[in-house]
């Protein structure tokens, strides 16, 4: 190990351990995913430092770039406020978990402490034709059968997932043309070509429950949501307009109190 590699390891390894604790502690699923991504990138950097650049980069492209991204895709749909509940479903689950984890920790640390690594040999020969080429030669000659089998198994899994989730279409697909034709055909029965009018916008009022006015000044009933109409919660356009007239009167009386009398007579 060169000193640079040492420094890299001792900076990165504690950070990775800290962040992987975040995996246990974080409440939100997306935070867990971010911790996971950080640990994966840390691994990739360590692989590259150990002269396995192909493995390191592929780790990021495949696991971080594709697999974690798919996970995140699903997690995001849970929403920003969702966090997992801490209610125990099995009684005493937490304590059993702690005891088992401690046992596993003891066994692992015992094994790791006892292991003595022999000095690494053969790295220079393995990487003499550059790392990707050396790897390709091993995979495509010594382990070609295993590679092909894994490939076939993966493709089978992907295709079977497609087959299992495939639904045959029961009715013909309704495209843009079919929808337009149906709209025209429905015209004699009182259908319409255009979308429904939006609710009305007035000087003082801009809400879902006020109908819009058509060019003749009559309120359009359909411009208010059907739900509000059925509940009887829509406001009358006349109320809104009267309120605005009243406002005009009030402001005019405030502005010029003397000349207000003839104005009111006019109205």
């Amino acid at each position: 190990m060169s000193p640079g590699e040492d420094v890299l390891f001792w900076v990165l390894a504690p950070l990775m351990v800290l962040v992987s604790f975040g995996l246990l502690v974080a409440r939100k699923a997306v935070h867990v995913a971010i911790c996971m991504v950080f640990v994966m990138i840390g691994f990739a950097v360590l692989y590259i430092a150990l002269e396995a650049p192909f493995l390191g980069v592929v780790q990021i492209v495949v696991y971080t770039g594709a697999v974690m991204m798919l996970f995140l895709f699903v997690l995001m749909l849970v929403g920003v406020d969702a966090s997992s509940s801490l209610v125990e479903t099995i009684r005493g689950q937490r304590w059993i978990g702690v005891i088992l984890a401690l046992g596993l920790g003891v066994i692992l640390s015992g094994v790791v402490v006892q292991t003595v690594f022999p000095p690494a040999v053969g790295l220079a020969e393995a990487n003499s034709v550059t790392n990707p080429v050396g790897l390709a030669r091993v995979l495509m000659s010594d382990y070609v059968l295993a590679m092909e089998v894994v490939g076939i198994v993966l493709i089978t899994a992907a295709v079977s997932a497609l087959v299992l989730t495939h639904k045959r279409r029961l009715t013909p697909a309704r495209g843009q043309k079919e929808i337009a034709d149906a709209k025209v055909a429905a015209l004699p029965q009182g259908g319409r070509l255009t979308p429904l009018a939006a609710p009305g916008v007035y000087a003082q009022n801009n809400a879902m429950d006020t109908p819009a006015l058509d060019p003749q000044g009559r309120p359009i009933a359909e411009s208010v949501s059907r739900v509000l109409r059925i509940r009887g919660q829509q406001r009358e356009a006349t109320d809104v307009l009267l309120g605005e007239h009243g406002l005009v009167e009030r402001t005019s009386t405030v502005a010029e109190p003397e000349g207000s009398a003839p104005d009111e007579e006019e109205r």
Binding site: I60, T64, G65
Partner: peptide, 16 residues
């Protein structure tokens, strides 16, 4: 030796 794969990796991280 894997520079172009490295470019792909950076692009896929940028989407995060």
């Amino acid at each position: 030796p894997v520079a172009v794969l490295y470019i792909l990796a950076c692009a896929s991280l940028g989407v995060y």
